[in-house]
Write a protein that binds this DNA or RNA. Sequence first.
DNA 1: CCTACCGATCGGTAGG
DNA 2: CCTACCGATCGGTAGG
Lengths: 240, 240
Amino acid sequence: MAQWKSAVPSREEQRDLKRSVIMREAAAAFRRFGFHNVSLDEVAKSLQISKPTLYTYFPTKQQLLFECHSLALDLGDASIDYASREGRTGLDRVVKMLDHYVRQLTGEMGEMTVLTDLHALTPEDRETIRKRRDGFDRVLRAWVREGMADGSIHKGDPTLTVMVFMGAVNWLHAWFSHGGPRGGDEIAEHFSRIFGRGIAADRPGGSGRGAPAGKPRRSARAAAGTSAAGAKSARLKRVK
Amino acid sequence: MAQWKSAVPSREEQRDLKRSVIMREAAAAFRRFGFHNVSLDEVAKSLQISKPTLYTYFPTKQQLLFECHSLALDLGDASIDYASREGRTGLDRVVKMLDHYVRQLTGEMGEMTVLTDLHALTPEDRETIRKRRDGFDRVLRAWVREGMADGSIHKGDPTLTVMVFMGAVNWLHAWFSHGGPRGGDEIAEHFSRIFGRGIAADRPGGSGRGAPAGKPRRSARAAAGTSAAGAKSARLKRVK
DNA sequence: CCTACCGATCGGTAGG
DNA sequence: CCTACCGATCGGTAGG
């Protein structure tokens, strides 16, 4: 009996599975052609269903886009959590976050994400996404500042520093194609290397590779007052 | 008589001036709200003219966007030319290009440019822009390869390296606002610093700052078979 | 240089 | 889960 239940997906699981298939298809089209150049008739047709069927899974086209953005932020939060646990210096955390996030975006979950067309969302949804992005950037700025304090990151305007590397990451979808010639590992290593060295502090006599060991400290996420892990895990589990 | 002519702008000069005012207004709206979320009625209204008047300056909305993209590429070509003249090593040229291009995009001319919504163009225009971007990237990749050969740039996949830093630049318009708190000089220096160090080769015993002097060489633009200076200058002159 | 309009696209729904 | 449709938006133009 327990066997039976675990072998056959529940109605709800089936529905979530179908939702994720739709998101993958839609996200791919949005990234490739732009939100406004993709009609739901086209999305439906490529899934061999009709448009009204789509509407049993998503109430509006904008909601579909909203969830693609939300998932990208969920992945970002997971990367923040990971770097928060594993990183030691400010630089180390920033680089580990970048590496992890690029792997997520280029991975299977990344196929369901969209990073552009924020303008197409409803004002409320857009504000929601904007706030989450702000929280995200705030953690990164805190880490950059920490790195400047612990001597691992070159001093300068933390806001600008974060804009530069997050810009490069957010542009990923403009050129990366899932299943294309370049693998996520390769790309993540490239990002890590360039930004690891790009923002590292001068190390007299050193070559700039790696990060010095720093004193353990309480998590910068906690320091910045952000916590999104709860809401995140639910969606991450549901959507995969 | 010569006095008179040079003091009073010709009909054609006036027209070009009006065109550039329209481009500035439209580009600002496109960047802020997205191409599809800006109607020409709105653009016209904010310029205190009617939509049909707009159509005496631009044949279609897409053409307006096309010119905003073309201008961005003109500025990019100017930066390539500058770096080609002034740079010595591969690294030096790449960094000088980045610095110059960021200054252009954040400067007065940059107000008339758009870097996103490429999908909204007609297939022909999109192809035109794509080809120019390719030529642009090709020059950059050639410089990166040169830098790897002359010992100024860390070895690796040149395509990935170019994607990373051009991504950061192309994302500029997502957060930079003309007339905002941050100046173009400041931003350009930040970009140059991060990428200058990020892509530099290991320098045993050195701190990674600056670039070693390299042997003079023929221009990489020539080497890459690109030449856009002709078409560019005309537009750059007309549009300012 | 304007007012008024046409026509196409497409998000969303009725009805079955 | 489908076919057929409605309604709004908006690019582009007629006519003056």
